[in-house]
């Protein structure tokens, strides 16, 4: 790890002033569960770390416009124990999926959205797009954990636990820089970079994710289903988050979002459309799963993730409808 400067601001204004115009200049430190390992592995070497844990206005979980505001530095443990979060089962399950108390105690909501991909080529120093001598390493390499959707030139999968659930629930994110405030749909926050200099999220080096705004939970049935290799702390192989509005026993609105299958949370539009007007049953859930994976482009080793995505969608839908 390169030596770095440490800024410890007490206010958001101060924190924003400490940021720079490039990622090399300064990066945000919240839970530190990712940035510290990136620095130890010499994948990131910011000159300054800006600790935002002491910025009060970035914390907390509170009612907001009929829904909920989750502060950027709210920890996963806070999310896991907060009563209001329980009314969003898709989020709660995603939170509990982060299966180590240590990570839940330290990791934050904002950090979950901004953490970097776990792609082993990226972590070994071959860049976000994982290339060697200009050639992409993933398609012909060890790609069992990589993307089955939206691959090329980026093949990593978005590591965010909250992302798919937030998108399914129609959440918005608030972002601030010293000179600007903006609100973006969670669905538009995640990006597939087209070059090594681009990021996988819509965040500028001088911005901080300040919070998450969730719409009212009422009337929405949501669930997340996660498949991972081990029960102990592990990255999911695939997750599916769904949110349904059901009237008269039929689906009137559906959101189906897959996690860990693409460089960003992957909205399964075909599955959403298929579900409209259907009652949720084993058969329709299965069919929705099949719709969700249409167009998947698995790599040499990860076709099994197509099957996992299909099953995750099915099981998430049945869970949301209370039929699991």
């Amino acid at each position: 790890m390169q030596a770095f400067e440490y800024a410890n601001p007490a206010t958001l204004a101060e924190a924003l002033k400490s940021l720079g115009s490039s990622w090399d200049e300064a990066q945000v430190l919240a839970g530190g569960t990712d940035i510290i390992s990136l620095m130890k592995d010499d994948v990131a070497a910011p000159k300054r770390l800006v600790n935002i844990k002491n910025v009060k206005e970035l914390g907390g979980i509170a009612p907001h416009a009929g829904g909920l505001r989750i502060g950027a530095t709210a920890t996963f443990d806070e999310l896991a124990t907060n009563a209001a979060v329980r009314t969003y089962p898709a989020i709660r399950t995603a939170v509990l999926g982060v299966a180590s108390p240590q990570i839940r105690n330290m990791g934050t909501a904002g950090g979950d959205l901004c953490q970097r991909p776990r792609c082993w080529y990226y972590r070994a120093g071959f860049g976000l797009l994982a290339t060697k001598d200009g050639q992409p390493l993933v398609p012909n390499g060890e790609n069992r954990y990589h993307a089955i959707f939206g691959g090329g030139p980026a093949y990593f999968v978005s590591p965010s636990s909250l992302g798919p659930a937030l998108i399914a629930l129609g959440a918005k994110l608030t972002l601030e820089s010293a000179s600007d405030k903006r609100t973006v749909d969670a669905a538009k926050f995640f990006l597939a970079p087209g070059s090594e200099t681009e990021r996988e999220i819509d965040l500028k080096p001088n911005e901080i994710v300040t919070g998450i705004l969730l719409p009212a939970a009422a009337g929405e049935k949501s669930a997340t289903y996660e498949i991972r290799e081990r029960e102990m702390l592990d990255w999911p192989l695939v997750t599916a988050s769904v949110a349904l509005k059901i009237s008269g026993g039929k689906v009137s609105s559906a959101r189906v979002v897959l996690g860990h299958v693409a460089p960003m949370p992957w909205v399964a539009v075909a599955a959403e459309q298929y579900l409209l007007g259907k009652a949720i049953s084993e058969a329709t859930a299965e069919e929705a799963g099949a719709e969700a994976v249409k167009g998947a482009q698995p790599l040499s080793q990860n076709a099994y993730k197509v099957q996992l995505a299909k099953v995750a969608v099915k099981r998430a839908l049945l869970a949301a409808a209370g039929k699991a």
Binding site: L137, N140, E142, E231, M232, D234
Partner: peptide, 24 residues
Amino acid sequence: ITDQQTGRVLNPDMEFYKLAGLAD
């Protein structure tokens, strides 16, 4: 897990070189 393209071991860590936890 080794990678023939780069010659590297891709999981020299306790993240992707996985050991079981109690629940497993």
